[in-house]
Design a binder for these strands. Structure first.
Length: 1022
RNA sequence: GGGCGUAUAGCUCAGUGGUAGAGCACUGUAUUGACAUUGCAGGGGUCGGAAGUUCAACUCUUCCUACGCCCACCA
């Protein structure tokens, strides 16, 4: 007896749709067949066209055609952000890719995960906003444009700053859209209608305001200190943009002669120093020894005379010098080494007095004391293009003059080999963009007091206000934040947000003191007008009329023109008393300074009343690669928390890298990069996306595996064909919102399976377990729905198409397929949308107007009849066991066999009667008779507690069957014995968890019964 | 030097304090109706090594080994 009350509580598998927002006026067109990576394979198909298309599925599944059609439909109809003013918001922001970028495999992972989340939340009814845009990427973009100029024998220097920036904008308009087109090909459902750019007017204004505010709060300041200088790009860069690499190098030892006849205690008249950078000795300003180092105690405070330059420098005591290392004495070049800079300061040398011997391109220039011999001036710091540099020349001169201490090595034979230097591997800093060795260089730059800003984010993570997933990243985060250094934010570039600071020079118009001093003052203000206003309110101008203002773009221009401009300037005498020259700081801000504002400046901030900001900040989640945890994520926390007083997002999900198939890092130089667009062309975007989701387990990199992508393409094909099967049997979209009434066990069973799947998916999504989510839906679709449900319902359609069973089954199957499409949609948006529309057309001509992308996510409230579930599970077990037995005994799988069930359980009795057709079709057992079989050779098959005896007169090999049963018996007996042993252990029974004991007892009973049955079955064969 | 991660079937990876799973690969087999981009059945792992905790360890702890990553430093 089947009870059919299961569906009573199943009312909420709705097919309810949200009203899409009206389409924006302008349909998007994409050029077809665009060359270069195939990123533009879109063609426009108007909604009206596919509404009238055949709803019959073609035999073959062509991802490219479907993808192009649906993406433009979604976008043109505003479906990525339907109007839901009253819905709960859900917000993520896309890490803005460089405007110069093209989609690489890492983007594919990052954006797939985000799209899965946003599609899921959109289907759950949220007001889901996925902010998208691009980053102006100062250095990268300027490099691209300059490289293009070089190809045309042109260069940046041929243009004014304004002209050059204009050229970059032109380039951006023409070529900057590559990556956004490619993101569309991946299926990403971002809000393109509000696409942002970090140099949009609104965004730029926010950046300037932040700079000014932080300056006024003392959190941004100008400082003269060593920066990481990239001599190729001729700009400062931040600590994070420096990559340390081990390169083979040399370690040289020199004698620095002591001055004034001083000697060490051992009688030597020199101090030995060692260095990997001999060229910097031209700017040495001291020799340091450890204060406790007895060897040098007597010469501390005395001087050495440097070879080559003849500079007289002191021997200083400093903890920095390690007595254990080398000679214990270290040369100090405060202007060209970070450690030495600190030693120099401790020794009383002011940064302004530190000697500099290199220009912006790392060529030797004269020091302030003019002691560098002429032959060095203009040389590059080291060998370049085969030409010796300052390093080589310094070594040669020192050797000639007898100051080089050779390095002696002994061969195994005891021979001594003399070399100029000791070979060594040296950790060398390289610029991550320019690729050349970074030079510590003494300049004035703008810094952010990162240490102060880091406090709130650390607290937030500590308190759980920001959850980092996976949690293992927390330690890394804290370690970095606790040791954070001032953040250099000025860049000597033209492309970017120009720093709103004016260098100001005062002069008297009579010319008497009218010289342009070195920077006498800096005024920071968002605008020139504001900066000027800051001046005229000064006390000295309170009698009215401010100074005359002259603004120049560069310092050079100011130098050349200010005096004549002043003399020629008209104006009342009163205002000509004083003049002021403004030159805006030529530098721009670090790109990451602006992208740190992304979670809120894209939403209307700093206008805190902006509706989007109000509703969508803080965001709900940030998904990013761990490689930009410091660059971007931490900066968003620092800036966001300081500026808005709120965490930018309560959850930060960090995913790994996508690696090449052999596990190596993908890089252009290795030539092992995998183009995601190529994979999309080959397997479809859905397959690539599903791959990314399935492989994304927290805290692990992903290795590329084309076979697996292919497997998910096959999965899509499987679903396609399952839908074709449904269509051919009149199964269309569900006519009801709730799960249909089901009397047949198989239908109740699938309803229960759907409910379990939804629940498992929701759990996985809540935990951001993308792999578990993908795995769940994959196995439900393939193993449960296709392999069992569709097979189990085939007998229903073999009979009367209008029977109540057929009607019910069509309804349930259509409903279940609907649920599949909904659940799979976040992962495979294209094929599911296509099938949804084609399915809907069976019963609902207007289905195409109700796209899947805004369909409602299932809310399972099911309680399914246990009887029905048990019955189907039992049929499955019987089928599998029968197939297995046939296979082992070599019985043809299709051969129908009679079967006897000598001692049927209640379940067996009921199910054999009700599901005879399914048993016949799948297990190929018919008829099944309850009762003993006539004697004779037979095969034994077990399902649950039931034994089936299948007579096989003349077919069966009795010995084979005996062996098969004996093998099963052995396995069961072993299991039973092991459990018996455990249950016999008093410690286990007393101390283990009661559920564990209970389970062991049940398992033991089960295996014992199985042993019993198998023994009986074997006996029957005797 | 500091920190993190990973070692599970041939390969790529999940996994839980109660003696292991997936995909691919492999073996056998099936083929006139959804699907060979397929179906069915199957083989294959003492869960890197050692010790400890526990009634029980692939799972927890410690140590070791190997590989990878990050940070700092090597004058």
């Amino acid at each position: 007896m089947l009870r059919c009350n299961a569906h009573a509580g199943m009312g909420l598998f709705l097919r309810e749709q949200y009203r899409p927002s009206p389409p924006p006026g302008r349909p998007r067109h994409y050029p077809a067949g665009r060359p270069g990576g195939g990123e533009g394979r879109y063609c426009l198909l108007r909604v009206s066209e596919y509404e009238t298309m055949s709803t019959q599925l073609p035999k073959t599944f062509d991802p490219a055609e479907i993808e192009a059609r649906w993406y433009s439909h979604w976008e043109d109809n505003g479906l990525f952000r339907p109007e839901r003013p009253d819905a709960e918001p859900f917000t993520i922001v896309n890490p803005p890719p460089n405007v110069t970028g093209s989609l690489h495999i890492g983007h594919a992972l990052d954006n797939t995960l985000q799209d899965i989340v946003i599609r899921y939340e959109r289907m759950r009814g949220k007001d889901a906003l996925w902010v998208v845009g691009t980053d102006h990427a100062g250095i990268a973009t300027q490099m691209v444009v300059e490289r293009q100029m070089e190809e045309r024998q042109d260069k940046r220097a041929n243009y004014t700053r304004e002209e050059f920036v204009e050229k970059v904008w032109e380039w951006k308009e023409e070529s900057g859209g590559t990556i956004t087109r490619q993101l569309r090909r991946l299926g990403c459902s971002m809000d393109w209608s509000r696409e942002q750019f970090t140099m949009d007017e609104h965004f730029s204004n926010a950046v300037l305001k932040v700079f000014v505010d932080l300056y006024n709060e003392g959190l941004i300041y100008r400082d003269k200190r060593l920066v990481n200088w990239d001599p190729k790009l001729r700009t400062a860069i931040s600590d994070l943009e420096v990559e340390s690499q081990n390169v083979p190098g040399h370690f040289w030892h020199f004698k620095y002669p002591l001055a004034d006849g001083a000697t060490l205690d051992d009688g030597r008249d020199y101090i030995e120093v060692a260095t990997t950078r001999p060229e910097t000795m031209l700017a040495d300003m001291a020799v340091a020894v450890h204060p406790g180092d007895q060897r040098y105690k007597s010469v501390v405070g005395k001087h050495v005379v440097l070879p080559i330059t003849g500079r007289r420098v002191p021997v200083v005591a400093d903890e920095h010098a390690d007595p254990e290392l080398g000679s214990g004495a270290v040369k100090i070049t405060p202007g060209h080494d970070f450690n030495d800079f600190e030693v120099g300061k401790r020794a009383g040398i002011a940064p302004a007095d530190m000697l500099n011997m290199l220009d912006a391109e790392a060529n030797v220039c004269q020091t302030a004391d003019r002691l560098i011999p002429e032959e060095f001036i203009g040389l590059h710091r080291f060998k370049r293009d085969g030409k010796d540099g300052a390093r080589e020349l310094v070594v040669r001169r020192l050797k000639e003059q007898g100051y080089l201490i050779p390095h002696i090595t002994r061969t195994k034979k005891g021979e001594e080999i003399e070399q100029d230097s000791e070979p060594r591997t040296i950790a060398t800093p390289f610029g991550d963009r320019g690729g050349v060795v970074i030079e510590p260089w003494l300049t004035d730059q703008w810094y952010v007091d990162a240490e102060k800003l880091a406090q709130a984010p650390m607290q937030a993570v500590q308190d759980g206000d920001i959850e980092i997933i996976p949690q293992s990243w927390e330690k890394t985060f804290f370690h970095w934040m606790e040791n954070i250094q001032p953040w250099c934010i000025s860049r000597q570039l033209w492309w970017g947000h120009r720093i709103p600071a004016w260098f100001v020079r005062f002069y008297n118009t009579d010319g008497t003191t009218g010289t342009l001093e070195p920077v006498s003052e800096v005024i920071v203000d968002e605008t020139l007008e504001g900066a000027y206003e800051q001046m005229i309110y000064r006390p000295e101008y309170e009698d009215g009329g401010g100074p005359l203002l002259f603004v120049y773009d560069t310092m050079q221009e100011a130098e050349e023109r200010w005096l004549s401009d002043v003399l020629e300037s008209p104006g009342p005498e009163a205002t000509k008393r004083h003049g002021v020259v403004f030159v805006q700081d030529p530098d721009v801000l670090d790109t990451w300074f602006s992208s740190g504002l992304w979670p809120f400046a894209t939403l209307g901030w700093p206008d805190e009343s902006a509706p989007l900001y109000q509703k969508h900040y803080p965001n709900d989640l940030l998904i990013s690669g761990f490689d930009i945890l410091f660059f971007w994520d931490a900066r968003m926390m620092m800036q966001g928390m300081h500026l808005t007083g709120q965490v930018p997002w309560p959850r930060l999900y960090l995913h790994g890298l996508v690696r090449a198939a052999d596990g190596s890092k993908m890089s252009k130089s290795k030539g092992n990069v995998v183009d995601p667009l190529g994979l999309i062309d080959q397997y479809g975007a859905d397959a690539l996306r599903f791959f990314m989701a399935a492989m994304e387990s927290q805290g692990r990199d992903i290795k590329m595996d084309d076979k697996r992508v292919e497997g998910y393409r096959n999965f899509a094909t499987k679903l396609w064909n399952a839908t074709r099967f449904c269509q051919s049997n009149g199964i269309g979209a569900s006519a009801t919102l709730a799960a249909p009434d089901a009397k047949l066990a198989v239908n109740q069973w699938i309803i229960g399976e759907v409910a379990e799947t939804v629940e498992a998916l929701d759990t996985a999504m809540a935990e951001l377990r993308f792999d578990a989510a993908a795995d769940t839906i994959y196995h439900f679709v393939w193993d449960r729905f296709c392999d069992w449900y569709l097979e189990l319902i085939k007998p229903v359609f073999a009979g009367d198409a209008d029977s109540s069973a057929a009607v019910e089954t069509r309804a349930v199957a259509g409903w279940a397929l609907d649920q599949i499409l909904v659940m799979l949609h976040p992962f495979m948006p294209f094929i599911t949308e296509e099938l949804w529309s084609k399915q809907g057309a069976v019963n609902d001509k207007n289905r195409a107007n109700y796209p899947l992308i805004t369909a409602k996510w299932p809310e399972p409230q099911a309680s399914v009849s246990k009887d029905a579930t048990n019955a189907i599970d039992w049929v499955i077990e019987l089928t599998t066991a029968t197939r297995s037995a046939r296979n082992e005994l070599g019985i043809p799988p299709g051969k129908k066999l009679a079967a006897y069930c000598p001692a049927p359980s209640d379940l067996a009795t009921r199910t054999i009667e009700r599901s005879a057709a399914a048993i016949e079709r799948l297990a190929r057992l018919t008829p099944v008779t309850l009762g003993e079989m006539p004697s004779g050779p037979a095969m034994q098959v077990m399902a649950g507690a039931d034994v089936f005896v299948v007579p096989l007169e003349g077919v069966i090999d009795i010995e084979a069957e005996k062996a098969r049963l004996a093998k099963a018996l052995e396995a069961s007996a072993k299991e039973a014995k092991s459990l018996e042993g455990r249950l016999g252990n008093a410690n286990f029974v007393e101390r283990a968890k009661p559920e564990a004991v209970e389970k062991a007892r049940a398992d033991h009973a089960h295996h014992s019964a199985e042993v019993e049955r198998l023994t009986t079955a074997l006996g029957r064969l005797e």
